[in-house]
Amino acid sequence: MSPKYSGTCLCEDEGGIRFTISAEPIDPVCTCYCTHCSKGAGGIGQVMVAFPQDSIKIESGEDRITTFTFEATDSGKPKDKMFCKVCGVTLWTAPDHWKKLRQLLVRTPVIDGRLDWKPTVELTSNWRAKWTSLIAGAAQQ
């Protein structure tokens, strides 16, 4: 199957991670404001979308991907964070319950040209910064 999407880490021009995705995203596009997502993004939260794990192919830089497992999470379930060990960019996460589905939550900023995907769900929305607004039409969880 031909790739539908491609993406990179920040060190793409210096032997970094390049990947392709051969499937369409699994709805919904979500943003999460939990502690890990906010700190990991260096901002108010992260925008991500699920893809089948087997639809993601590492084209280069696989040796740069490392995993950190969060045991103490807001959900109470562990999750793996896969990131570039050179530039530090988070590529995707695999919360424990998503692993069983064989899906990865891919950060939309690492997908080429996909910053325009609007979240349809806001996770841990009660943790959203008070100076921000609800995303119009997005479900609140």
Rank of each mutant, 00 (worst) to 15 (best):
W131A: 04
A41R: 04
A139P: 03
W117Q: 08
T20D: 11
E62V: 08
G45M: 08
T20L: 00
I21P: 13
L101Y: 15
I44Q: 07
P25M: 12
V86M: 12
I135A: 03
K79F: 14
D74H: 01
D27K: 12
K77H: 05
T90R: 12
G88S: 12
A94K: 13
G61N: 05
T69V: 12
E71S: 09
C37R: 04
S125H: 11
W131K: 02
E71T: 13
M48H: 12
V121M: 03
V106D: 10
S60F: 05
L101P: 11
F70H: 07
C37G: 04
D80H: 04
L105E: 15
T120M: 02
F51Y: 12
I111K: 06
W127E: 07
V86A: 09
G113H: 06
E59Y: 01
L91Y: 13
T93Q: 05
N126T: 11
M48P: 04
T66E: 15
R107V: 15
K118S: 02
A72E: 14
P52T: 15
D116H: 08
F70M: 01
T124G: 03
K99C: 13
W98T: 05
V49Q: 09
R128D: 04
C37K: 06
D74A: 01
D112F: 00
K99E: 11
D112P: 00
V86C: 07
G137A: 09
S133K: 13
L104N: 13
Y33D: 01
T31S: 05
V89W: 15
K79W: 12
G42P: 07
E71M: 07
A23F: 02
G113L: 01
T124H: 10
A136I: 12
G113T: 10
S133A: 06
I65Y: 11
W98C: 07
I58D: 04
L134W: 03
K77T: 00
M82C: 13
C30R: 14
F51I: 03
L123V: 00
D116Q: 03
S125R: 11
A72F: 04
T20C: 03
P78D: 10
Q53W: 09
R114C: 14
T90Q: 14
L91P: 08
